[in-house]
């Protein structure tokens, strides 16, 4: 599973690079517009180590941000699952926060949190949590009538049990969404670094953009892609083994 993820990434990445080289060749563009193979190779050999450090830095923030967003989404989803005033208020607030463009919120975050680790984490979690929230609300708002009916009739259905039943019955959906949200967490962290930090691969991409250096950006994209493929592969492996162990019980 892991190796499949990685070679699939290689195919996508090198197809993209091949396409760029093709355009460069056909239109006769300079290395300033699209870097040539030797230029890209030189940049890769010169920068890979620094960019690896940057990507790992981003990755750690993304993982923490993802965990944070899972917690937020579960909390909001569980609280907002009921058709009460408070439930609908929580949902509206969560939806509204998501509707604001992060670049508009960033200056407020600078004032409150500075432009360091916490801002990156917060923005990463904000970008990542919404799809999670939608899934959680969808799952938690949908009663599992067959099972819940018995506990309701016998008066034993507390909210904790209700949440457990709904989570267990939709375990596959939940694990798929959590695994998929890894991409969003990484993307969110990179966006955060781009606009609100002095560290990480997003910050390095911003510098490369200032220097109009596309070869650096392509190397950065490779490092991001390979790290993300590895992480998603690991998450999928964990999900599969978890399902297997539950099925065995």
């Amino acid at each position: 599973m892991l190796h499949r993820r990685i070679y699939q990434f290689f195919i996508v990445y090198f197809l993209g690079i091949g396409l760029l080289f093709g355009i460069k060749l056909v239109l006769g563009l300079s290395d300033y517009v699209i870097p040539g193979p030797s230029n890209l190779w030189n940049t890769a050999t010169a920068e890979w180590y620094r960019y690896l450090g940057d990507v790992l830095n981003t990755f750690t923030v993304a993982v923490v941000g993802q965990v944070l967003s899972i917690i937020i989404a579960l909390t909001v989803g569980v609280v907002g699952r009921k058709a009460t005033w408070f439930g609908s208020f929580i949902k509206v607030a969560a939806y509204n926060v998501q509707a604001y463009p992060i670049v508009a919120i960033a200056p407020i975050l600078f004032i409150l949190l500075g432009d360091g680790y916490l801002t990156r984490l917060f923005i990463a979690a904000m970008i990542c949590y919404f799809p999670l929230l939608l899934s959680v609300i969808g799952i938690m708002g949908e009663p599992v009538a067959d099972i819940e009916h018995f506990y309701r009739i016998t008066g034993r259905l507390r909210w904790q049990l209700e949440v457990k039943i709904r989570a267990f019955e939709n375990l596959y959906k939940l694990t798929t969404v959590i695994s998929g949200s890894a991409t969003l967490a990484m993307a969110g962290t990179i966006v955060a670094e781009f606009i609100a930090a002095n560290a990480g691969i997003g910050y390095s991409i911003r510098i490369a953009l200032y220097q109009s250096d596309l070869s650096k950006i392509l190397v950065a994209l490779f490092m991001i892609g390979i790290t993300l493929s590895f992480y998603q592969g690991v998450l999928e492996m964990l999900g599969t083994s978890l399902k297997k162990s539950w099925a065995g019980k």
Partner: peptide
């Protein structure tokens, strides 16, 4: 600086 960078990368 943009001009000089571009020239160094073969832009005409």
């Amino acid at each position: 600086d943009q001009v000089i960078r571009a020239l160094s990368k073969g832009a005409r």
